[in-house]
């Protein structure tokens, strides 16, 4: 089974090292606005949701591309052929997770899992991003995140809307620990 990038929001601290690392690898500078991964931070609630590309099995971006510039490679990664991309933006509109964006030129860019060795995972020291063959729990987690499909808005708006739903569903029961008995 192929490896999946998995995001575990409950473990994410919002440090954004994944975002910094991604832009450094892909753009040669620290530039979160161009990263292929992002984090939606809810500081007041103390929660952060990593927004990742799921490399969807039935990828909307791929289906939407009129130029056949988006394809699935032999590793199962949904990739953009910049040479073929006409910059029409159909993929950006189609992705329900806000995970494919465009340069000023119009050309699309998205996560390609760094070809199988994702830099974001290497920089996550909290276990909130993992790259592995998914087990049942991981698949359920992934499915739970993928079910929130946002149709409208710019990519950033879709990401935050999706993250908001993940936060709403997160089990955030305050732990009332043993100390309560001390008083």
């Amino acid at each position: 089974m192929e490896k999946h990038l998995l995001a575990i929001p409950n473990l994410c601290t919002g440090c954004s090292r994944c975002v910094y690392a991604c832009s450094a690898v892909k753009e040669g500078m620290f530039m979160p606005s161009r990263a292929r991964i992002s984090v939606s931070n809810f500081p007041l609630e103390g929660y952060t949701v990593p927004n990742i590309c799921f490399q969807c099995p039935n990828a909307e971006c791929l289906k939407a591309c009129p130029a056949e510039a988006i394809f699935r490679n032999e590793r199962g990664i949904v990739a953009v052929d910049a040479g073929k991309c006409t910059g029409c933006g159909e993929c950006t509109a189609a992705c329900p997770y806000g995970m494919i964006e465009q340069y000023v030129s119009g050309k699309a860019y998205k996560c390609d899992l760094c070809g199988g060795s994702p830099a974001c995972v290497a920089e996550c020291h909290f276990g909130a991003l993992v790259f592995k063959e998914p087990d049942r729990i991981a698949l359920a987690l992934r499915a739970g995140q993928m079910k929130h499909r946002i149709k409208e808005g710019a990519p950033a708006e879709k990401r935050i809307a999706l993250a908001g739903r993940v936060l709403d569903e997160a089990v955030r029961v305050p732990r009332t620990a043993a100390y309560m008995g001390d008083f």
Binding site: T13, E45, G46, F126, R175
Partner: peptide, 30 residues
Amino acid sequence: ETIKALKIGDRSCASCPLGCGNFTSANGVQ
């Protein structure tokens, strides 16, 4: 130890791999 028992998540500043922030929750106060 008291804080640990109430902690429901770690928090970081940007770019920090230490994440020293403890997000705590007790009886509705977070």
